[in-house]
Nucleic acid binder design. Structure first.
Length: 453
DNA sequence: TTTTGAGTTGTTCGA
DNA sequence: GTCGAACAACTCAAA
């Protein structure tokens, strides 16, 4: 009888279409291992911790309770488990993030010293970061050409399910307790994820191009929390899409944005925390008491701009925010409050259940104009216009800003207009800044960085 | 090799 | 009210 192998689970909490698991299953009885890595755990907010724990519990149930959980440095724990069970090989999917790459290099060294092999198979992406390049071998800087090249490169079909024999991994450590969270999280687990995809696909995908920007109602897939942990692989979704149909094509391009940003992070690991455009490093941002007050108003959903406040409250209430509103709220922090994008990005990462370093950082950089494929600096979202355009009936505002629930649609985006509200009296604050004035201020600051060049 | 032009999730202004 | 232009700068691929 052959020795068992370890399947080290990181961002692939699923049993279907899982190349690393398939590779492990083909090599012997599988000891599925998850290591709670303090370095990552400490950085996650309560919502993502809770989501992680519930997702691991669901995975453990799906494999009849065989999941082995360890807490500690991965280089120590993976080796310890491999040694305990007598495994000569560890299988895992590749991680392309800056921390993951360093960690995996360390683990690889520690295992090699002990004579244990590591085999990396697959990744959380349809196309591996770093593998889509221009003719001359250099990385793409903008999404459009990347998207074309990415689609042209293509991806393998899902592998048929392979039988797995689970091995006894011995005494496991219990999962950490899921921290109590107020946010109502999605149902954890692969079956729930698959059901959600099928439900969305059959109900809303055809209308996706037309309605995906409406934050009221249920027009987006909401699969990001599952994709974040690899409960679903994007390949599974891509296999169901027909890019000749408009809604399908637009949904596919959203998956491509996710892959583009992972690719950018792979080429520029520092871009998670620092602006990619050096020219904009000199952009003047506000700090100090006044900025702290503004940041607090933004973070708690009390800026006086209804669409901004609705979004920020949805973030706290659900651990999730509609993509359109992420752009609006981010733009408001950067362009209206003149606060550094990294501060907003950290707040998002702390509260988002789907918080993904590559997508989050580069989404923020897009808004701030500091990233690859940036929005032109003069493209400044007007929160009132955006609210009117994408939440014309005001239903999204009513859901998250109950103080304004009684206002008619015509007024709900401008509660400061004559007689709509006794400002402050209904518990809703007046605008924290004047958008038109701050727009001019932002333009002036961006202009200043240009003349410095 | 060099040039050209399309593209880039928005807003404002003025006809 | 609607519509096109202007608001830069740069990437990238086609010509």
């Amino acid at each position: 009888m052959s020795a068992p192998v370890v399947w080290w689970i990181r961002r692939d909490l699923r049993l279907r279409d899982n190349p690393a698991l398939d590779a492990a299953a083909g090599a012997g009885a599988v000891v599925p291992l998850f290591v709670v890595d303090e370095a990552l755990w400490a950085r996650s907010g309560d919502v993502r911790r809770a989501w992680m724990v519930r997702s691991l519990e669901a995975l453990d149930r799906a494999m009849a309770g065989h999941l082995v959980v360890r807490c500690g440095p991965p280089a120590t724990e993976v080796l310890a488990v491999a040694t305990d069970v007598g495994a000569g090989v560890v299988h895992a999917a590749e991680d392309f993030g800056p921390y993951g790459r360093r960690r995996d290099a360390d683990v690889g060294i520690a295992l090699a010293r002990a004579g244990v092999e590591v085999e990396w198979t697959g990744s959380p992406y349809a196309v591996e970061p770093g593998s889509v390049v221009k003719e001359d071998g250099s990385p793409f800087q903008v999404f459009g050409p990347f998207h074309r090249a990415w689609a042209a490169r293509g991806w393998p079909a899902a592998a048929p399910p392979a039988p797995v024999t689970w091995a006894d991994g011995g005494e496991g450590v219990a999962l950490p307790d899921a921290p109590p969270v107020d946010a109502e999280l999605p149902t954890a687990g692969e079956e729930a994820a698959q059901r959600r995809w099928e439900e969305f696909r059959d109900r809303a995908l055809e209308q996706y191009a037309a309605r995906r920007d409406e934050p009221a109602g249920d027009h987006t897939s909401r699969l990001s929390p599952y994709l974040r942990l690899g409960v679903l692989h994007p390949r599974t979704l891509l296999a169901d899409l027909d890019p000749r149909r408009k809604g399908h094509a637009v949904y596919r391009s959203e998956l491509a944005w996710r892959e583009f940003y992972a690719d950018v992070l792979w080429h520029h690991p520092g871009s998670a925390r620092r602006s990619l455009k050096p020219a904009l490093a000199s952009l003047r941002v506000d700090r100090g008491q006044q900025a702290d007050t503004h940041f607090e108003a933004w973070a708690t959903g009390r800026t006086g701009y209804p669409i901004v406040d609705a979004g920020m409250r949805q973030l706290l209430g659900e651990g999730w925010m509609h993509n359109r509103v992420r752009m609006i709220t981010a733009s408001f922090l950067v362009k209206d409050l003149h606060i550094d994008w990294t501060r907003g990005a950290r707040h998002f990462m702390r509260h988002l259940v789907d918080g993904d370093l590559a997508s989050n950082s580069h989404g923020w950089q897009w808004v701030a104009g500091t990233g690859t494929d940036p929005a032109p600096y003069f493209r400044i979202f007007n929160p009132t216009t955006q609210g009117l355009r994408f939440d014309p009936d005001g239903d999204y505002i009513r859901r998250w800003v109950p103080e304004l629930a009684s206002l008619p649609a015509a007024d709900i985006h401008t509660p400061w207009s004559d007689g709509m509200l006794p400002l402050g009296g209904a518990g809703y604050p007046p605008p924290v800044v004047n958008h038109q004035a701050e727009r001019s201020e932002a333009l002036a600051r961006y202009e200043a960085t240009r003349s410095e060049r």
